[in-house]
Structures are given as structure tokens and as C-alpha cells.
Design a protein around this nucleic acid. Structure first.
Length: 462
RNA sequence: GGCGCGAUAGCAAAGCGGUUAUGCACUGGAUUGCAAAUCCACGUAGGCCGGUUCGACUCCGGCUCGCGCCUCCA
């Protein structure tokens, strides 16, 4: 089955050919750690997590690198406002990021290089760019990249250098040769943290750290580079310019970008201030529900994040767990190849998760309809296996349904629920339906639904 | 203004040149003491105008609308 993926450079789906047979080197732009991650970050984290899981499932040996940018103006500013050191700030938010990822079921990348740990590589690459004439040190201690010198600048984001210049709103820096030039190295201001360099004390510009870290971890050329939609320009465009000028080799074969998360009509973004942090949303929805929401649309399309869609998605997730509930899976390894094949073929088509989920729902219908225990076991095992590739359906259904995660404070305890069920059972034995229904309604009012099936009453929380 | 992406049933969201997407919601039936869950039944949807074709939601052109990037943003 041929893997096809959409390459931002060509603007179309391409058949994937790895640099090295059976291996994939992938780099994804991670967070700038000065605040909590929001749902937009979650889309990238979950999206590339699913991609990595699937690539491994079809047999690739994937090296997945996702960086942490821990030097940046915004970090310094925030640390300053807080009156703390910038390293205290970044360490705090790195821990928070890992917690958020864990809640969303995101597996750790193979490496998470930090910019501060690669200062030597950053300085070396900047030096190389100066030597090759692609960069220049200005008198104020800044180092700039000479954009016009790089042939093909704008190839990724489909921008024309002349258009950029005519519409340039880029701050005119007195020390730049050209307004389009961007900083590789910034001279330290009074009282700021700094690193020593051949151009004086300073810190790296925004884009160079990714060029340095990706080259360091994966070599000058690698297979896939991913990130959020707003990184295409200028970040990724600048990375290409830096890396290809420095190494003289092609930087990346396949560029992948996620679609934006919207809030109403607008893109969820820092600047608009309309973002929802992952941890804030986790108070209302489980990590699995948020994850499911994120994979219920294709990774490249825009999605609107709203309570309505989250609630809808929760019902869909319930359907999966309902199908799994009460089934004894006797053998996790025997699965139905037909569904696996349909699932794989959907995923091989540019990671079409909505199509893959449709296959899983077909499976659910077959599972719910089946009367044969062996068959049910195989189908349930298949469902769990496919879910695992998407990073969902790995909980025990009982735990899933009884979890208080989605409930506000003061939820009824399991003990109380069980006691009321016992009470109701004796009422039912006496055919006292009024009392039986009174108890059930009371539980319902507290978000607990009862199920009388085959003489046994089970319950779940809404 | 420049560049790019999109427009599918009540909502969400895919594939596909001619045969059921799928999920949520809704309605009827089966089941149940009544429910819940489940099963069965039910939706010719595809922005507008042209073109190609025996046939287009699917290909081509134009239009309209929406969104994104062009500045920090995942």
C-alpha cells in the first residue's frame, strides 16, 4: 500500500519515498515555552503523534524530533514581568507542556532538543552563513540573513520576493541592508541574559535554532518537516534559506502543515487572545474527547472549536466504548484483517483520520450486531488495535464510563450509586415501578444513567 | 493590494466521473415494566453560471462568499 502525503511545497499529494529505505526522519516545530499550550498547539501535537504512530504501524523506523524553543524575546519579556529568571519560566512551562501532552495521550518524541542546549551549533551555523556571504554582522552586533542572496526564497510559502518588499511592513532596522533581511543573532540589551559569540554578547534570532537543531539531530537533509499553519511563513521559509545556504544541500523532502483551529470565524491565536488552553479545557472535557475532536477532521483542514462540537464528539466516543463494554477479549492479537486493511488504506491517503474513523464505525456496527462470542472478541480486539493507532480507545470501558472527569464537583460517589441501585433492585423485585423510577430519575439528575440488561443493572456517567 | 485554501444533507465530516460514506441530532419500529444501550427503517446533500462527457458533487473556466498568510502566533 503506497503512502501518499500532501507536500506544502508542491501543493499536492505525493507518493512518499524515504531517503533511506524503511526509515523516516521527521522534525516538527514545537513550542516557544512562555505560556500554557492551547488547542492550536494540541492540534500539532496530536496530529504528528497520530502520524508517527501510523508510520510506525506500517513498519517505518521513525525518528521523531520536536524542539523546544527556550530563548526568545517573548520569554525574556514574560520572565521580566514575572520577576523570575527566564530559565525558571521555561522550566515551569516545559513541565506544564508535558502534563498537557500526557492528558491528550501524546507519546514523547524521540528527542526534544532545547535551543539553549544548542548554542554552539547555532553560533557555528551563523558563522558559516557569514563565511558563505549569506549573512553579515551589522555594527550594532546583530547578524542578519541576506534574503535576496538566496535563490528560491518564497518557494514554500509561494511568495514573491518583490511582492513581499512592496508590501513590507517589516520594521525598518537601520542596520539592515534590506528590510527583508532577518536576524540570525541579536545583540544583548542591557541586563538581558546573553551568550558570547564572535559578534559579541547576544542571543539567537527566532529561526536559526530550528535549522541548527534539525541539522544537528537529523543531518542536513531529512524526510519530513512539520508544524502549525502560521509557521509556513516566515519561519519555515527562513529555515530553508538558512539551512540550504549553510549546508549546500536540500533541507527537507516533504513539508507538512496542520490546519488552523478556529473560534467562531477567527483563527485561534495568541495575538487575538481567543485561545483556550489545554488545561482549561481539560476541566470540562477528557483528554481523549479533545483528542478525538482533533482527529475527527483531517489534519490539514480548519476546524471550529466549540462546546457544541465537543459534546457531539463525546457522544461518538461513547458509541465506541459502548460497543467495547462487557466484551471479553480473549486474544488481543487475532484481528480482522479486512478492517485493518481498510483502515490502513484510509490512513495511507495523507492520514485521512475521518475516513479511518468511518471504517471503525462500520466495525462497531458489525460488532454490535454479532451474536457469536468468538467473532465479537476478534472485532473488539480489532477496534482496540485500530484505536491504538489513533491513540484512542485504550481505556477499560468501565473506567471510561464511570470516570468523574467530565463532571463538576460534588458528583455522587460510586458507593452511593451502588447503594441506590441495590435499593432500586428490591423495589423492582416487588414491581414497585414508581419507586424504581424515582431512584433512576434521581440518579439521572446527577448525571448517572442506568442500564438494565440481562437482569444486571450497570451505570455510567454522562 | 499580492499569494494560498475552501464551499457537501439540520450540524459535523470523507471518498468517488455512473452503485449506502460515517458520526451527532430527528422520526417510526423491534427490544424493555418503563427507560438506557443495541438493532432495523428513514435523508438523491453537494454555493452560482457555463463547458467537457453518453453521464459530474467529483474534471475545466468564470463568478460569489468564507478563511488563512503577507507582522509575533501551532
Amino acid at each position: 500500500m503506497a503512502l501518499k502525503l500532501f507536500n506544502t511545497v508542491s501543493g499536492k499529494k505525493e507518493r512518499f519515498e524515504p531517503l533511506e529505505e524503511g526509515k523516516i526522519k521527521m522534525y516538527v516545530c514545537g513550542m516557544t515555552v512562555y505560556d500554557y499550550c492551547h488547542i492550536g498547539h494540541a492540534r500539532v501535537m496530536v496530529g504528528f503523534d497520530v502520524i508517527t504512530r501510523f508510520l510506525r504501524h506500517i513498519g517505518y523506523d521513525v525518528t521523531y524530533i520536536r524542539n523546544i524553543t527556550d530563548v526568545d524575546d517573548k520569554i525574556f519579556n514574560r520572565a521580566n514581568e514575572n520577576g523570575e529568571s527566564f530559565t525558571d519560566l521555561t522550566n515551569r512551562f516545559i513541565i506544564a507542556m508535558h502534563e498537557d501532552e500526557g492528558a491528550l495521550g501524546v507519546l514523547s518524541p524521540d528527542q526534544e532538543p532545547r535551543a539553549t542546549a544548542h548554542m554552539g551549533d547555532i553560533i557555528a551555523m551563523t558563522g558559516t552563513l557569514i563565511e558563505k556571504g549569506y549573512a553579515y554582522a551589522a555594527v550594532n552586533g546583530d547578524v542578519y540573513y541576506r534574503v535576496k542572496k538566496f535563490d528560491g526564497y518564497g518557494k514554500l510559502s509561494k511568495k514573491n520576493v518583490d511582492d513581499l518588499q512592496s508590501g513590507a511592513r517589516i520594521g525598518i532596522e537601520a542596520h539592515k541592508e534590506d528590510p527583508l533581511d532577518f536576524a540570525l543573532w541579536k545583540a544583548a540589551k542591557e541586563g538581558e541574559a546573553y551568550w558570547d559569540s564572535p559578534w559579541g554578547r547576544g542571543r539567537p534570532g527566532w529561526h536559526i535554532e530550528c535549522s541548527a537543531m534539525s541539522t544537528c539531530c537529523l543531518g542536513p537533509t531529512f524526510d519530513i518537516h512539520g508544524g502549525g499553519p502560521d509557521l509556513k511563513f516566515p519561519h519555515h521559509e527562513n529555515e530553508i534559506a538558512q539551512s540550504e545556504a549553510a549546508t549546500g544541500e536540500k533541507y527537507v523532502n516533504y513539508w507538512m502543515h496542520a490546519g488552523a483551529i478556529r473560534v467562531g470565524k477567527d483563527k485561534m491565536s495568541k495575538s487575538l487572545g481567543n485561545f483556550k488552553t489545554i488545561r482549561e479545557e481539560l476541566k470540562t472535557y477528557s483528554g481523549e474527547t479533545i483528542r478525538y475532536f482533533l482527529i475527527s477532521s483531517h489534519y490539514r483542514s480548519q476546524v471550529e472549536y466549540s462546546p457544541v462540537s465537543l459534546n457531539e464528539v463525546q457522544s461518538a466516543l461513547d458509541r465506541f466504548y459502548q460497543a467495547l463494554r462487557g466484551i471479553a477479549i480473549t486474544d488481543l492479537h487475532t484481528i480482522d484483517d479486512n478492517y485493518q486493511m481498510r483502515f490502513d488504506s484510509a490512513m495511507c491517503d495523507d492520514f485521512n483520520t475521518p475516513e479511518a474513523l468511518a471504517v471503525m464505525f462500520d466495525l462497531v456496527k458489525a460488532l454490535n450486531s454479532s451474536q457469536i462470542d468468538v467473532e465479537k472478541s476478534v472485532l473488539a480486539a480489532t477496534l482496540v488495535r485500530l484505536g491504538g493507532i489513533l491513540g484512542i480507545l485504550q481505556q477499560d470501558p468501565e473506567v471510561y464510563f464511570k470516570s468523574t472527569q467530565n463532571n463538576v464537583d460534588g458528583a455522587v460517589s460510586e458507593e452511593e450509586i451502588e447503594a441506590m441501585i441495590t435499593e432500586r433492585a428490591s423495589a423492582r423485585a416487588k414491581k414497585d415501578w414508581a419507586e424504581s423510577d424515582r431512584i433512576r430519575d434521581k440518579l439521572m439528575a446527577q448525571g448517572v444513567v442506568l442500564d438494565d440488561a440481562k437482569g444486571v443493572t450497570s451505570w455510567r456517567r454522562l
